[in-house]
Design a protein around this nucleic acid. Structure first.
Length: 439
RNA sequence: CGGGGUAUAGCGCAGUCUGGUAGCGCGUCUGGUUUGGGACCAGAAGGUCGCAGGUUCGAAUCCUGCUGCCCCGACCA
C-alpha cells in the first residue's frame, strides 16, 4: 500500500478526551474515530489490526474443535423472557421496538439464543459434545464508557458456547477452551495469565479470567512470577487427549486479581522474591454454568438411559476489540505503538527519505514491488514529507520493520533495516533486505 | 447512577469576569527554497462561537432550558 493513496489520518497532537495511552495512540495513529460515547468507527489501519486479531481467535477456536456460526445482533425480547433475563438485565441492555411495536434488544451476549438454536435441532447425547461460537458486535449500555475500545459500549466479541451431557463432559469442553485461550493470547505476543474468577450463584471452581499484565491495567493483580514462564501448548496440542496436566500446571501457581486476592495465602505460598504485584487487563473469560439455561429453556437430549437430560453448558468470551487496546497497553513506548508481528496492520514500512530523488524513488519502488510480490504487507511512505516526519509517523503506527531508503545509504548500495521493537538498525543491500523481510 | 468539569476553525487553546461585529499555534492549500529525526520564507482558505429561547441598540460574553463530551466514584468483556 502506498501511503499517498491510503487513508491514514495521523494526529500530531493528542485529542484531549483520550486518557489512557492505548486510546491516545489509536487516535493519533489514525486507527479509530469516536462517533458517540463508547461507539467507534474503525479506520483502515485499526480495522486491519482488528481483523488480524479476529483471525487468530478464529484459528485457535477451530483448532480446539469449536464451530463458527453467526447470530444476529438483534434479538427478540421474548427469548430473554424465557430465562427471566429480560427483566434481570437492567439498563445496560439496549431495548428497541420495531415498527410493529415488537420488543427487541441489541444483544449483550448470546446464551439464550444459542440455547434456542441448539434445542431446535439436537436431540441425542450422541450429537454431543458441541461447541458453537461466533464473532459478533455486542452492545452494553455502560453507564460510563471510557478508555477507548477498552471499555466501549459497542464491542466485538468472540463468544463460544459448549453443550455436554453432564458436568464431567462439560469439564473436558472447558479445558479445551482453557488451552485454546493460552494459545490465542500467546500468538498475539501477550502473556495472558488465567486467574480464578468469581463464579457467582452457580458456584464451583470452573471459571477463569485471562489477564494480561500492563502497568496501565484496570485492576490490580497478584501472582507468582513463575507463572510468566510457563510453557504455552504448541500448535500440535492434542485436543482429544488428556488436557488436565496442562490445566493443572497453569492453575497451581498463585494468580489472582485484587478483588479475590488472599493476602495471607499469597505470602504463605509465594516466596518473597517471586511475588509480583502489578496491574492487568481482562481479555477473556471462560465459564461453566451447568443447566442454568437448558432447564428453563428445556434444552434436553436423550441420554443412553433413554431419559431426557438438560445439557450442561459453558460460555467462553474473548474481547476482540478490547484486545486491540490491550495489546497497545502492553506494547508501546514514548514514540508510539510497537505491534507484535502477528497482529501488525502491515509488516514493513518503507521510508523514502528523499522523495523525488531518482535514486531513492527507484530503490523504494523496487523494494516495494519485490516485497509485495512475495506476499509481505508493506506500507510505502511515498509522501512529500521530510525524513523527520516519516520517522515520526512510522514509529507512531508501530509497524515491526522499517526500511530506511536515503541517499546516504544508497551511495554504498545499502538500505537500513530498523526493528521497531528495540530500535536496532542494520545496513544491508536491498536484496538482503528483501530476503530478510520476506522470510 | 451520584459528584465535578467542559463545548470557540480539522486538532490543541485564548477571548467570557468588565457585552461593541472572533484570535493564536499546529495542520490544510498555492508558490519558492529545502531533504537522515515532526524545516524555512511569502501568500491564502477555513468558524451559524453545541442547540433553543430570553435580556439588550448590540450577545462567544449576561439569564433560562436542553443536548453532547470528559474526569472522579459505584458498576463492568
Amino acid at each position: 500500500m502506498r501511503l499517498s493513496h491510503y487513508f491514514l489520518p495521523i494526529l500530531r497532537e493528542t485529542p484531549k478526551e483520550a486518557e489512557i495511552v492505548s486510546h491516545r495512540l489509536m487516535l493519533r495513529a489514525g486507527m479509530l474515530r469516536q462517533e458517540a460515547s463508547g461507539i467507534y468507527a474503525w479506520l483502515p489501519l485499526g480495522f486491519r489490526v482488528l481483523k488480524k486479531i479476529e483471525q487468530i481467535v478464529r484459528e485457535e477456536q477451530d483448532r480446539a474443535g469449536a464451530i463458527e456460526l453467526l447470530m444476529p445482533t438483534l434479538q427478540l425480547a421474548d427469548l430473554w423472557r424465557e430465562t427471566g433475563r429480560y427483566d434481570a438485565y437492567g439498563p445496560e441492555m439496549l431495548r428497541i421496538k420495531d415498527r410493529h411495536e415488537r420488543e427487541l434488544l441489541y444483544g449483550p451476549t448470546n446464551e439464550d439464543m444459542i440455547t434456542e438454536i441448539f434445542r431446535a435441532y439436537v436431540r441425542s447425547y450422541r450429537d454431543l459434545p458441541k461447541n458453537l461460537y461466533h464473532i459478533q458486535w455486542k452492545f452494553r449500555d455502560e453507564q460510563r464508557p471510557r478508555f477507548g475500545v477498552m471499555r466501549g459500549r459497542e464491542f466485538l466479541m468472540k463468544d463460544a458456547y459448549s453443550f455436554d451431557i453432564d458436568e464431567a463432559a462439560a469439564r473436558v469442553s472447558y479445558n479445551k477452551m482453557f488451552v485454546a485461550y493460552l494459545r490465542t493470547f500467546a500468538r498475539m505476543g501477550l502473556k495472558a495469565i488465567p486467574m480464578r474468577a468469581e463464579t457467582g450463584p452457580i458456584g464451583g471452581d470452573l471459571s477463569h479470567e485471562f489477564i494480561i499484565l500492563a502497568e496501565t491495567g484496570e485492576s490490580g493483580v497478584f501472582c507468582n512470577k513463575d507463572v510468566l514462564e510457563l510453557p504455552v501448548p504448541g500448535a500440535d496440542v492434542d485436543y482429544d487427549g488428556d488436557l488436565t496436566p496442562i490445566i493443572r500446571q497453569w492453575t497451581t501457581l498463585y494468580a489472582a486479581t485484587e478483588d479475590v486476592h488472599d493476602g495471607a495465602r499469597f505470602e504463605r505460598e509465594v516466596a518473597p522474591e517471586k511475588r509480583l504485584h502489578t496491574r492487568g487487563i481482562e481479555v477473556g473469560q471462560i465459564f461453566y454454568f451447568g443447566t442454568k439455561y437448558s432447564v428453563p429453556m428445556k434444552a434436553v437430549v436423550s441420554g443412553p438411559d433413554g431419559a431426557d437430560h438438560p445439557v450442561h453448558g459453558g460460555s467462553y468470551g474473548v474481547g476482540v476489540s478490547r484486545l486491540v487496546g490491550a495489546i497497545i497497553e502492553a506494547s508501546h513506548d514514548d514514540a508510539g505503538i510497537i505491534w507484535p508481528e502477528t497482529v501488525a496492520p502491515f509488516k514493513v514500512a518503507i521510508l523514502n527519505l528523499k522523495q523525488g530523488d531518482a535514486a531513492t524513488d527507484g530503490a523504494c519502488e523496487q523494494l516495494y514491488k519485490a516485497l509485495t510480490a512475495k506476499g509481505v504487507d508493506v506500507l510505502y511512505d511515498d509522501r512529500e514529507e521530510r525524513p523527520g516526519a516519516k520517522f515520526a509517523t512510522a514509529d507512531l503506527i508501530g509497524l515491526p520493520w522499517q526500511v530506511l531508503v536515503g541517499p546516504r545509504g544508497l551511495a554504498e548500495g545499502k538500505v537500513e533495516v530498523k526493528r521497531r521493537a528495540d530500535g536496532s538498525r542494520e545496513l544491508m543491500s536491498p536484496a538482503d533486505a528483501i530476503a530478510r523481510l520476506s522470510a
